[in-house]
């Protein structure tokens, strides 16, 4: 362990960063866990209404987004392999693909929400409050909160990947100091993991 002039540590412990990231992922899982708990209770209480409301969602867009996220998960996982094999160009390329897919996901989400808004469905909208049953109001409330929070995590994940790209280009992240890239990957997989559950619970229960 070495010290710089300020008496601060300049040490690198890849395993510590990895555990730190995992622990952070645990808190994220329980953050969404609370929402899944709410979802399961309300679904249990309003099975018919959830069934009906899910018909409003577009399964094809949901499926497309699922496929996109799975592919992006593979590209970012591969980028770790290329970095360890010292193929910097390939690493940057794979990360760029990941970012593009992430942005496409968000664009899809934007249009999906837009269609709902066009139909007059948003939290607290008059159409929703007047013409839908209580179970359906809950379904859409949860739909907007959970997919919205998920989209927010995509944006955070993209920011971390951008940080990794900058560090790789600067050369401070390389085959012997890969922790930042690995953590960016872990975080991106978390986003994927949550979507794996969101997709069937909202789009496939019709």
């Amino acid at each position: 362990m070495e010290n710089n002039a300020n008496g601060e540590h300049v040490h690198y412990d890849a395993e510590a960063s990895k555990i730190g990231m995992w622990l952070f992922i645990f808190t994220e899982l329980l953050l969404f866990g609370g929402l899944f708990l709410i979802y399961s209770v309300y679904r249990f209480k309003n099975p018919e209404a959830f069934h009906l409301a899910a018909e409003e969602l577009n399964t094809s867009i949901g499926a497309l987004n699922t496929v996109l996220l799975l592919i992006s998960s593979m590209t970012i996982a591969m980028s770790t392999t290329t970095l360890l094999l010292k193929k910097k160009g390939a690493t940057l390329g794979l990360l760029a693909i990941t970012i593009i897919i992430g942005i496409v996901f968000l664009v899809n989400k934007y249009f999906e929400w837009g269609v709902k808004f066009d139909h007059g469905i948003w939290p607290g909208s008059e159409h929703l409050l007047n013409d839908f049953s209580q179970g359906e109001i809950l379904f859409f409330g949860l739909y907007f909160v959970m997919t919205g929070l998920h989209a927010l995590h995509i944006i955070i994940g993209l920011a971390i990947i951008v940080a990794a790209i900058i560090r790789i280009r600067k050369g401070t992240v390389h085959e012997n100091r890969a922790a930042l890239l690995e953590n960016a990957g872990l975080y991106w997989h978390l986003v994927d993991l949550i979507w794996i559950f969101l997709f069937p619970l909202f789009y496939l229960i019709t």
Binding site: L23, F26, T27, E28, L30, L31, F32, G33, G34, L35, I38, W122, P123, G124, Q134, I137, L138, G141, L142, F144, V145
Partner: peptide, 24 residues
């Protein structure tokens, strides 16, 4: 680590409830 995020999301929902009336 494992309990705080649950109240975190709950407080966020209360805030969203106040702002948008999501109904949760």
């Amino acid at each position: 680590l494992l309990a705080t995020p649950v109240v975190g999301i709950t407080l966020v929902l209360v805030a969203l409830e106040r702002m948008f009336g999501i109904g949760v």
